[in-house]
Design a protein around this nucleic acid. Structure first.
Lengths: 152, 152
DNA sequence: GTAACTGCAAACGCTTTGCACCAAG
DNA sequence: CTTGGTGCAAAGCGTTTGCAGTTAC
């Protein structure tokens, strides 16, 4: 099972978390939470206003930036780094998850179960570094996009 | 042995490579190559102009951007992604190298010898993705910075 | 000699800040 | 009622583009 299967109760949990962090639950924030909590793609500020305006017309771009700041600080979302755009956001990893990104459609799944301890120990010894964290991402083509390619 | 040990002949090889790509070898380009080919830290445009002006006074920031474009296109440098700044450049990885970054001083070493085939195969099977590439980075504290911390 | 490269200045686009009004609690 | 949040407009900042002069080859 892949961990990115969406959990329909998540938006409510996000709002509770944001409330706990001292933030008010406003319509724009709620709209953005409902988008980001279930998105299987990383989204940038411009996409987020556009999507957000569907349920919250007139939402300003500035509000998106401020909401992203709050959600990131609350540990709900993470910035996704890709070759080009590093300003896209996705729900934060739970525990020891890493990202698997589709190079064609941008879909992202989470995976876990890497065991890098042996490698990390070896590199630490060779380099003299004390290793604090690691960052692993896999890039490929998701099954939907493979089918699309086959049909062309 | 860590692969980032600098190779003194590298700047000349970079210039030959850039020439092969149809670029003229000018003073600013040469100065920037001499900096980037041997740097053990990722450098941003502003740091690069500043460093470049030591051997090439009056160098413009625009020239740095254009030189970076050429070097990246020629495969000589890569963009380094970090939590904050994603606009810093380092020599490109040779073959199957990955990065090991010092969180304290920014020093970067290359390492190789990861074996993720088993993991990649398992994730491919579970997710249905065809995996094309992977991206692995380790973050830690280098031995110099460990000593500094000890002395404080 | 010619075309690519340079540095400057202006333009551009994304992000942040200031502010008056609004609304959550 | 209080104060954090909103949307607008303006400012800020890193990057890109246009251009006339310069230089590699």
């Amino acid at each position: 099972m892949i961990a990115s299967e969406t959990n329909p109760q998540m938006p409510e949990e996000w709002l509770a978390c944001l409330k706990n962090h001292g933030h008010r639950i406003t319509a724009p924030l709620k709209a953005l939470v409902e988008i980001l909590a279930v998105s299987s793609r990383a989204l940038g500020p411009l996409e987020l206003v556009e999507l957000g305006r569907k349920s919250c017309p007139g939402m300003g771009l500035v509000t998106v930036y401020r909401a992203l700041e709050k959600m990131e600080e609350a540990g709900l979302i993470q910035r996704v780094h890709q070759n080009q755009n590093c300003n896209m956001y996705l729900r934060a990893a739970h525990g020891h998850e890493h990202l698997l990104l589709c190079l064609s459609c941008g879909k992202i799944e989470f995976f876990s179960g890497d065991n890098l301890n042996e490698l990390i120990g070896r590199i630490a010894q060779k380099s003299g570094f004390v290793i604090r964290e690691h960052w692993l991402q896999l890039y490929g083509i998701c099954s939907d996009c493979q089918e699309k390619d086959d049909n062309q």
